[in-house]
């Protein structure tokens, strides 16, 4: 699904947060949304799937305005993993992931719904805890449950707000690899993230946000020391190894 953002403006009660955001995201693209705290990443994600209503500009999905999609149809095309979950409520992990099938369920889940859910649980390493209560899981396991639930929606676009924030290194890599394999199946992934090195390693496109504006966007080559320093107001140094650039804070210089 192709996403076009045209001059998007958004304000929370007159307090402008997104200013004139324009960009095109092609089907199957893996986009990392980076930028300092409060720069508007979460807000942009919520505007793309219509949780928040933009005040100016438009969001086009496959050339059609977001507003012209019915909510249920939209939920079959786009899934969202929030940055902070509501405190998990007591429910079996399998049931929690099955909720992702809601856009397809009329009255009760079909065998197919159950099979899709089971497959996803397995893919995300959640099979061993599938019959446990969500509230009894660790933070990282819970986060994987939320990602699994979004996958159960079988969306064409997957929006994730810091999906790896609570995960250990192995699961960070696993989740990013999984997202990468989804993009190869044509699913668009847009993900807000703070770890710029991991973002650079796995995503194919970067949108840098600063104070509600699109500071820079393009391929991974825009992860330059200069851009990152300006984006975060931190001195950084770059390490070149095996043709990849790693960006780390520069400890020798004071700000």
């Amino acid at each position: 699904m192709k996403i076009e953002l045209r001059n998007i403006e958004f304000a929370y009660d007159k307090n402008p947060v997104l200013r004139n955001i324009t960009g095109v995201i092609d089907p199957g693209e893996f986009v990392a949304l980076v930028g300092p705290n409060g720069s508007g990443k979460s807000t942009l994600i919520k505007c793309i799937n219509g949780i928040l209503r933009i005040q100016k500009g438009e969001v086009l999905l496959d050339g059609k305005n977001l507003k012209s999609y019915g909510t249920n149809r939209l939920s079959q095309k786009m899934a969202y993993v929030p940055q902070t979950e509501q405190k998990a409520v007591p429910m079996n992990v399998f049931d929690a992931v099955l909720i992702g099938r809601k856009p397809y369920i009329r009255w009760k889940p079909t065998k197919q719904d159950l099979e899709i859910t089971a497959g996803i649980l397995e893919k995300l390493n959640l099979a061993p805890v599938a019959m446990k209560d969500v509230t009894k899981l660790s933070g990282g396991q819970q986060q994987r449950v939320f990602i699994a639930r979004a996958l159960a929606q079988q969306p064409e676009v997957l929006l994730l707000d810091e999906p790896t924030a609570n995960l250990d290194l192995k699961h960070q890599v696993d989740v990013l690899k999984l997202l990468g394999s989804l993009t190869r199946q044509g699913i668009t992934v847009i993900m807000a993230m703070h770890d710029i090195n991991l973002a650079a390693m796995y995503s194919k496109k970067v949108m840098m946000m600063k104070e509600g504006r699109l500071f820079a966007s393009g391929g991974n080559e825009i992860f330059t020391a200069d851009n990152v320093e300006k984006l975060y107001d931190v001195n950084v140094e770059t390490i070149h190894k095996n043709g990849t650039v790693y960006i780390v804070p520069d400890r020798t210089q004071s700000i």
Binding site: T71, M78, A79, Y80, Q86, V89, D95, K102
Partner: peptide, 20 residues
């Protein structure tokens, strides 16, 4: 019941499942 379940994980998340 399915809408109520979607609500339990937060209003914004529910919206992404098509629940107002």
């Amino acid at each position: 019941a399915w809408s109520y379940k979607a609500l339990q994980s937060g209003d914004e998340f529910a919206r992404s499942l098509g629940v107002n």
